[in-house]
Write a protein that binds this DNA or RNA. Structure first.
Lengths: 340, 340
DNA sequence: CTGTTAGCGCATTCAG
DNA sequence: CTGAATGCGCTAACAG
């Protein structure tokens, strides 16, 4: 058990230095010697101690991934993508979940986390304060934001403004003039920029089309299905006229709205159109029209960039905009005929 | 940048040994000295290098978590729970996602993974071969299965047999005699025991109630919503009489069945009852009757046990059965009246 | 209670 | 192409 590098050296009849070189594919090792070392290592089941080689090289072959939640659609998929390319390249993934966007739990991280523990950090959909950013940048490990822009830090994400606009324009194109918006949580805007971007896009698109913004039709949620249902209920409960379409800040919220509508006997899309953002796996079965994005790909792209940077590529880490796509299914249709 | 232990020692006017002791809360350090060291460390922003201390102690304060997927309901939540207690105790979480149950990708793990890299391993809902189990046990780090039983390895999970029986009995109690079953994938049974347990429970419960098992009403799926819809479609497409109720191996499959039913205008629960297992966050909004389990709690329990074991508690790691609960909502009702 | 002395296991100069 | 020596940063006896 626990064969060390000397055991391998002994068995191969070479020095530990040669073993180290041979095993890591470095040059200056004759083919025969390398083969002998490889065989010895295999026979002994030798694997270098990460602690020891980490101490010696200063690199851990581990990248940190910081997320607010792991049990939410975007994050689960993004982590999956990140993990794929990390593992393909022999890197480990150290997960830091914050259990929410609350600044309280977050504080303690940034400080100690990075210290000799990870070679790079991927921050998923979290807003970083200037101070935190500075701390991280001083450690000078490659740093990337995934899923939402962070000022002063390269990131990979979709153009949230354009994506939201695409959804709203689809509705407008269908003839809707009374559109409500179930948006991401306002109180999280400090931690997470995406809701804000989408909200602004909604407003701008509406205004540009000459449509009225009804404050009571703009209701905040937290991206969950439960909150989507709750937010939709608030709109449905409103006295007076109702929107003929709902734009939702996430598919989960859209699905929540759909369930709530169904419970009330509001028919979709005959009486109400609903469009979301994400393309959650529930969306296709539910027939939800949405603006699709691919978090797995975003994760892969980000991971690939930080690894390239670690491998010496000059400026591999670059701001990258990933594509989105409007997927029209069966929750959107022209508005019902009725007196304007 | 990169203050070392000697910097702290120098600043505090003590030796590095004392710094080490003081910082780790070990005894044999006077209160004043400890305070001085703490202050110095804080001023310098000192954090011990995990590689160095790992090398010196042989422990990494990191636990590995092996999952088939991170972007699926059970795993996301279980990881969240594990992460919570790990972090509460100053441990790191190293994530190994296999991207599926395929044995191919799995192989390479077990070998090198454990080697001086983690202090304990949590295996989520994966079946381990005898050989793999042996390898892991030889490394003698605490090992635990979460979410599904693994022979020869302590685990935390619900009683899947009883849970499935509870769901089916609920249906039978309502008066259903024609019950279909959308079960977990058969081809995965080699990797994952849960589907098999639930299937056996379904059969036994049916037989015990004197009900007929219709092979064409037992259709396999893979726990996803898409497959739930597909499996339900297969049953709906069958000629002849249809089941009045569907028991689904997971809530996602149940939701898929519901969407498919809705698409065909089959009314739930008037014409068809549906019950799942899990209590997915979509289940409450969807009104799905289900047998609830709490993966976050299971993750927390498992993590707590391996940490206790690491902290020297004799036999902290114990087989533990977590509770489940039948949650009756609005997708189940007595079967429609019709000629038997 | 505190300082000194050795390693932990590997990667790297530098000779050869 | 290969080996011997040195150190990565910290912890763990052992003295004192």
């Amino acid at each position: 058990m626990g064969a060390g590098i000397d055991d391998v050296a002994l068995r191969a009849g070479v020095s530990t230095a040669t073993v180290s070189r041979a095993l890591r594919g470095l040059p200056r090792v004759s083919p025969e010697t390398r083969a002998r070392v490889l065989a010895a290592a295999r026979d002994l089941g030798y694997v270098a101690s990460p602690s020891a080689s980490g101490l010696a090289t200063g690199r851990t072959r581990t990248v940190g991934v910081m997320v607010p939640y792991v049990d939410r659609w975007y994050f689960g998929h993004a982590i999956e993508g990140i993990d794929q390319v990390l593992r393909e390249n022999g890197y480990n993934l150290l997960l830091f979940s914050l259990g929410g966007y609350s600044p309280g739990r977050r504080r303690s991280f940034t400080e100690s986390m990075v210290r000799k523990q990870i070679d790079a950090l991927l921050v998923l959909t979290l807003w970083l304060s200037d101070e935190e950013l500075l701390q991280l940048q001083r450690t000078d490990i490659p740093l990337m934001a995934v899923g939402g822009p962070v000022d002063g830090c390269a990131g990979v994400h979709i153009d949230d403004t354009a994506a939201a606009a695409a959804a709203v324009e689809h509705l407008i194109g269908l003839g809707h003039r009374h559109i409500g918006y179930l948006h991401g949580a306002a109180q999280d805007e400090h931690n997470f920029k995406v809701p804000g971007l989408r909200s602004v896009a909604f407003r701008n698109t509406m205004v540009r089309a000459g449509l009225e913004l009804r404050p009571e039709w703009l209701v905040p949620g937290d991206f969950t299905i439960a909150d989507g249902a709750r937010a939709a209920a608030r709109i449905f409960d409103l006295p007076g006229d109702k929107p003929t379409a709902l734009f939702c800040g996430s598919d989960e919220m859209a699905l929540g709205a759909m369930f709530e509508a169904q419970r009330r006997g509001i028919r979709i899309p005959q009486e109400l159109s609903v469009v979301g953002i994400d393309d959650h796996e529930f969306s296709e079965p539910a027939g939800l029209t949405t603006v699709a994005q691919k978090p797995v790909e975003q994760g892969r792209a980000a991971a690939a960039m930080v690894l390239a940077e670690l491998n010496g590529s000059p400026a591999a880490v670059q701001e990258t905009i990933m594509p989105f796509e409007l997927v029209v299914r069966s929750t959107t249709a022209p508005p019902p005929k009725r007196p304007a």
